[in-house]
């Protein structure tokens, strides 16, 4: 069974929500990424989104765009990322081996490597799915088909600007879970999320049986707690990546611990009450 399906089945039976941190592969370096992944799993991450650095990420705000830039300046290559993940899958403890990993990757990269090669390498590296944020459903039929053949999930996004009929169609075409984008805009922390967010997700809930996970703008335990009422999972990206901004100049252990503490705090906010 695909690890993503297994995770949400298990969480459902336990009445829990998934905590899904995003981190940029290779920021500040792949050794830190390799140390961060087990630490985040230990501190309560249920699924990890691995950002593949891209030179022109138009959906990303300054925090993640700068993180991608730092990783690329280090000379990071997609092959190095896959190698790091392969090693983690082979040598990590049972929790690390069983935690679903998905890549967030621009279609520019997938297209250049070739869809088949990217998916083969991703599957071999132990990834369970992918999000291609610049590939709308109109362009994704071929990738969807080829991903499914390899038991990889292609997670589609639904946003506040998506008309409802289109949202239903996207939900029909997605696999694994639905990524609901909380705000019309780029990635980045927000103090306040839209007032109609919970109502929109509750509506989407009536249209699909897939898990619905909310991302963009989420950074605090309060937000995580509040959105857990309607979502099956919460994705936290910029708030984590921001903590890597000056990581290159600090002891790696300090950075890993600090990011772990942050995820631990969010995980605590998600723990079932009583």
């Amino acid at each position: 069974m695909n690890r993503i399906d297994a995770l949400f089945a298990r969480l459902k039976s336990e009445g829990r929500r998934a905590l899904m941190p995003f981190l940029t592969a290779g920021d500040p370096d792949l050794a830190t990424t390799a140390a961060l992944i087990p630490e985040l799993v230990r501190r309560g991450a249920d699924l990890l989104e691995i950002g593949v650095p891209y030179s022109d990420p138009v959906a990303d705000g300054p925090v993640i765009a700068a993180s991608y830039h730092r990783a690329l300046t280090q000379g990071i290559r997609v092959a190095h990322i896959f190698q790091t993940l392969r090693t983690l899958r082979a040598e990590g403890d049972a929790a690390v081996r069983e935690t679903p990993l998905i890549s967030m990757v621009s279609f520019s990269i997938v297209n250049k490597m070739g869809v088949d090669r990217y998916l083969n390498d991703a599957a071999t590296a132990g990834l369970d799915g992918l999000i291609v944020p610049d590939l709308p459903v109109e362009e994704s039929a071929k990738l969807q088909e080829k991903a499914t053949l390899r038991d990889l999930k292609l997670i589609q996004l639904i946003t506040p600007t998506t008309p409802r009929a289109r949202a239903v169609e996207i939900a029909r075409l997605t696999t694994g879970f639905i990524y609901y984008v909380s705000v019309a805009g780029i990635t980045g922390e927000r103090k306040a999320l839209p007032e109609d967010l919970k109502a929109n997700v509750a509506w989407l809930r009536t249209q699909t049986d897939l898990p619905i996970c909310i991302g963009f703008g989420i950074s605090s335990p309060d937000q995580v707690q509040e959105l857990a009422e309607v979502a099956d999972g919460l994705i936290v990206g910029s708030a984590l990546v921001r903590r890597l901004a000056d990581a290159a100049n600090r002891p790696k252990g300090d950075v890993v611990k600090e990011v772990g503490d942050f995820i631990g705090e969010l995980s605590g906010a998600l723990a079932p009450k009583g």
């Binding site: 520019s108 944020p133 610049d134 709308p136 362009e139 996004l157 289109r166 984008v181």
Partner: peptide, 20 residues
């Protein structure tokens, strides 16, 4: 209809922009 000139063109943008 998909904005293609032969094999080229199309729309490779985030879902957020599709409605616009």
């Amino acid at each position: 209809a998909l904005g293609r000139f032969g094999a080229f063109g199309g729309r490779f943008v985030p879902e957020t922009l599709m409605d616009a």
